[in-house]
Design a protein around this nucleic acid. Sequence first.
DNA 1: CGCACCCCCTGCCGGC
DNA 2: TGCCGGCAGGGGGTGC
Length: 270
Amino acid sequence: MPELPEVETVRRGLERLLLGQTIVRVEIREPRLRRPLAPDFAGLLTGRTIEQIKRRGKYLHFGLDNQQVWLVHLGMTGQLIVDEPAAALLPHDHILVFLQNARRLRYHDPRRFGLMLIGEEQDLSACTGLGVEPLSRDFNVRYLWAKTQATQRTIKDLLMNQRVVAGIGNIYANEILFRARVRPTWMSATLSLDAVTRIVKATKVVLREAIRYRGSSISDYRDGEGNPGSFQDRFYVYNREGQCCRRCHTPIRRETCGGRSAYFCPTCQC
DNA sequence: CGCACCCCCTGCCGGC
DNA sequence: TGCCGGCAGGGGGTGC
């Protein structure tokens, strides 16, 4: 579910709701996420104040007042929602964080592919090993060109490799490649410099536009206040197999690429 | 090192 | 109507 635009939308909402809040109690209802929560997870958070909320790729970083970082990855179905402690709990509400202002941060994740870690920032970033931020100047034509030349894999696989560029998943890889007019299944090393230039530009345009529309909600993505995004209404290719290309009316095709669905227009991306 | 394949887990949808 | 297989926005491990 959540890729960079969704995580950034969640971050912005939580920043407004959680900054400066002290955690008074943590209730763990299900510790078995992608990796089990640390045994002392609740103890490490209780009493801490949230001083800043950052994003790196698809990870949220909650900066705590003891210089440690609480890192959250939402996996496919994770949601962080601020609500009232009186609100009824749902199945798959795994972690409850009670705040000084009498509100509650609720972690909901049916598939439990999410991840939470607490520790020193440098240890955690070594552990995640993320590549450059796609919206930073570090993600440029020279950088991506070198990466395309150095590997024998498709361009879509390269864009989705978090060690190369952090935050792009299946939705945005497909949308970026449509706008760059590059077919997802092409081998990255065969691309022209012009095509790589278009991909870098399209990456920044698509991700910024998706953030502006508060991300994409296919089924269960919600931001920190429980609201869906609307970028799914602006997809050109993702989830549109058989529907007409918005640019040329050719039916959109789907092929499996690296085990995941690749969507493209056979006319625009040729 | 890359990569094909499998796993993790639940929910939903379409076909039979 | 109900069951079953396939698929889903995430990542990681293994064996070749």
